[in-house]
């Protein structure tokens, strides 16, 4: 890793400068992570009096636990649906916003502010719209003959949290898609138009392939978002229910650790989650290196 050609010479100053960041990293990041790994291999007795080393037993229990497996299942459906919905809507809006000559900036301003809305707030907003007794969206659906009730129906609850999670994420994806589109040189489109390609053909054969780096980057970001940042949406609205139908992995870690007080199990889940983040981060970084070629 490079430094400047001209560097300052000092024996202890650089350490002093790094000290605050290092202290916080060690105390609040590295140490807890190591603790999580250690605890994941321990088991407490029923009274919390003694702990024994059990190796990978917690992981084995976890992988056999039907409620954990169902949580994995829910998380996959939830994150794929959220990413797909948020990205396809964002792409649609970005493509048309890039098309219009007047008002691109105005539209951008009006479309990006949900980025600032907290996931918890987004959840509550949609929870209110889909409220079974007074929600306006439920009412509209009832007029169409659809009985929508996220309090009772598992499917409806999952649909509601997906919509809330995607709603908040559209603006972020929109910004990146728009930036990606604006980076494509106009001459490419002109050449294609002269060759007789219509707007739809141009979209499928030029825009989409050229946007693939952006799309891939956003896919990873959206997965990370759906995996980790949506805890608030679940916790503030469905609380994982009805039943376990919206209990995503992050929610389960919190519940098992803080409500059910299952330290070993929660720690094992933390370790699994850590592995997922590390994998996603590695993928993202490999991709960042590749993106330079474009």
């Amino acid at each position: 890793m490079q430094t400047k050609r001209v560097v300052f010479r000092h024996t202890f100053l650089p350490y002093l400068l790094c000290l605050p960041q290092l202290a916080i990293t060690l105390v609040f990041f590295i140490w807890p992570a190591l603790q999580a790994i250690r605890q994941s291999m321990l088991q407490q007795d029923a009274f919390g009096l003694s702990t024994t080393f059990v190796g990978l037993a917690n992981f084995r229990t976890l992988l056999r636990d039907p409620s954990y497996l169902s949580s994995v299942h829910v998380t996959i459906i939830f994150s794929v649906a959220t990413a797909a919905l948020a990205m396809s809507l964002a792409l649609l809006f970005a493509v048309v916003a890039d098309r219009v000559i007047r008002g691109t900036n105005t539209y951008r301003t009006v479309l990006i502010w949900p980025y600032a809305v907290a996931p918890a707030v987004a959840g509550v907003l949609w929870y209110f719209l889909f409220n079974p007794s007074i929600g306006i969206a439920t009412y509209a659906l009832a007029q169409l003959g659809i009985d929508f009730n996220p309090v009772i129906s598992s499917t409806d609850a999952l649909i509601m949290v997906v919509i809330a999670a995607a709603w908040k994420q559209v603006s972020y994806n929109f910004l990146f898609f728009l930036a990606g589109l604006q980076a494509i040189p106009n001459s490419v489109f002109e050449a294609a138009a002269i060759d007789g390609a219509g707007p739809m053909k141009r979209f499928w054969t030029i825009v989409l392939p050229l946007l693939s780096p952006t799309t891939f980057f956003l896919l990873v970001v959206n997965m990370v978002y759906a995996f980790f940042e949506t805890f608030a949406i679940i916790h503030a609205t469905t609380q994982g229910g009805p039943g376990q139908s919206t209990s995503i992995l992050v929610y389960k870690v919190w519940r098992d650790g803080f409500v059910a007080q299952d330290l070993g199990g929660s720690a094992a889940q933390s370790v699994v989650l850590m592995t997922i983040v590390i994998a996603l981060t590695v993928i993202q970084f490999r991709f960042v290196e590749r993106r330079v070629e474009y």
């Binding site: 290092l22 609040f28 807890p32 992570a33 603790q35 940042e229 720690a267 989650l273 981060t281």
Partner: peptide
Amino acid sequence: LIFITLMLPVEVRILPTFEI
């Protein structure tokens, strides 16, 4: 060491971080 923090969002280390 600093780079690693990227991989450890608060959600995955809640319990030990809370303890500390």
